[in-house]
Amino acid sequence: MVNYIVSGLERSGTSMMMQILKMGGMKVAYDDKRPPDEHNPRGYFELEGGKIINRLIDGSFPIEMYDGMVIKVTAYGLRYLPDGYDYKVIYMLRDIDEIMASMSKMLNENLGDEDRRAFENLNKFALKIMRIREDMEYITVNYRDVIEHPRREIEMVNDFLGGVLDVESAVRAVDPALYRNRKENIVKEVNK
């Protein structure tokens, strides 16, 4: 069996991808420890209230319980996924300015260049880890592409997953209204 992972930097569209896979008919594992809020109105789709990484680090996360299911492990947690399993990772990519803008709103604090560089480097590192790990297959999916061309992108994901998705249903999980931190708007705000 395979453990399916949705990953990417925080605020890169990982929750949207979890919804897509759920609507598409996959078994998606999450709990209700972290309720939906204004930043993720449809929910975070996380285990352990989003703190799964801590349990991966200390080796206490029972990944064997999620065989054949989809779980969300954001970029920093990928290096801590244990050996002995096969992973298929859907890794979300999003413009770094949009990610920084979204994080800044969540934190109510403007993140600076050092934050941007650190998260960019984490993104590169996560991609490299996936290339190196012989137990991982992965696909990268661009957040904006999913919003603008949901059917095309979901069909690509479906190919990667071996054709298990109900694409018609999965497409309905994409809500362009939730794409709020658009780069063009961020630029406009800066230029005001």
Partner: peptide, 19 residues
């Protein structure tokens, strides 16, 4: 590609974001 300094900064932000 991901230095110790980067890692500490990311961890600080992830704690603040609840991850």
């Amino acid at each position: 590609p991901f230095s110790k300094e980067d890692e500490e900064r990311v961890k600080e932000r992830l704690r603040a974001l609840g991850y």
